[in-house]
């Protein structure tokens, strides 16, 4: 099927560009945060500033390139952290069942019912924690979906014959859980993690849009959007560029994650 394999290629192009910005921003745009107050706002197309400048005379394009790092690194940490929690607690819940499962599932349900933005805003905002505290809060808020997902996959594995034979062989419970079940859960976990990166990217930039997580002078897409809001009439590129960057990056990761998930599910179904 040729149509299907087009998705990863189409997604890889923007994601590759973002990855280059994340890794190489200090060489690509060493003075992105350079202010030029006298210059002030200039519209897109100004000589030397293809996307214009903001109130402080900072180049919109350079700032957006430099902002990729804080937009992407935190979300990856969030997805990794919450999946680690998910794999651990989800495996316990799925394998042990009983009260362990009940307690963990109720905990996940409770967290799942909370509006993420609101809780993250209130907790991270009142604690004044900065970037990594915000990441930590989001790890906790993202973990319930992972716990549920892993629990479901583990449950589906426990009825398989190979687990039965492992038990008959007298293997330890932890050995069965982490050496035999876990490898079969990992592919789906990977796809879920990718989807989580996209959601975390949106949540994280939402918080920096509201003024949390990154300091005032820092380069960050959400922060740049918030600053650009007042410039809509004078340099709309200050909003369009970071806005499109967030939308396109999130969409590319989402589509890729969705594609992976479908592939893994199809492969699991064929077995």
């Amino acid at each position: 099927m040729k149509r299907v394999s087009l998705t990863p290629i189409l997604c890889a192009i923007p994601l590759g560009a973002v990855a280059v910005c994340v890794v190489g921003s200090q060489w690509l745009v060493p003075d992105a945060k350079q202010q030029d107050i006298l210059l002030g706002v200039t519209p897109a197309g100004t000589a030397g500033h293809p996307f214009g400048t903001d109130q402080l005379g900072r180049d919109i394009l350079q700032l957006a390139i430099a902002g990729a790092r804080s937009a992407v690194v935190g979300p990856i940490a969030i997805a990794l952290g919450s999946m680690l929690i998910g794999l651990l607690l989800g495996t316990f819940a799925g394998y042990f069942g009983g009260w362990v499962d009940l307690t963990l599932s109720k905990y996940a349900d409770l967290l799942l019912a909370l509006p993420t933005t609101l809780i993250a805003l209130v907790v991270a905002g009142l604690v004044d924690g900065g970037y990594w505290v915000t990441v930590l809060v989001l790890v906790v808020l993202f973990s319930p979906t992972d716990i549920r997902m892993v629990r479901g996959s583990v449950l589906a594995q426990t009825t398989r014959p190979y687990i039965e034979s492992a038990r008959v062989l007298g293997l330890g419970r932890f050995r069965i859980m982490f050496r035999h079940i876990l490898p079969n859960v990992l592919p789906v976990a990977l796809a879920t993690m990718l989807l989580n990166v996209a959601f975390a990217l949106v949540a994280m930039s939402a918080l920096s849009f509201l003024g949390l997580g990154v300091g005032p002078g820092e380069a960050d897409w959400g922060r740049q959007l918030a600053d650009g809001r007042d410039l809509l009439g004078r340099n709309s590129a200050a909003v369009i560029l970071p806005g499109m960057l967030i939308i396109v990056t999130a969409a590319a990761i989402n589509l890729l994650g969705d594609w992976l998930q479908e592939r893994f599910e199809r492969r699991a179904a064929q077995r």
Partner: peptide, 26 residues
Amino acid sequence: SVGAIIGVGAPTYAVGLILLYVFGVS
């Protein structure tokens, strides 16, 4: 369905600001 995958993940604030630019300002 592709639109929905993008829509579910699309950040409210970015979509809002772009709508604001297109329908409010332009």
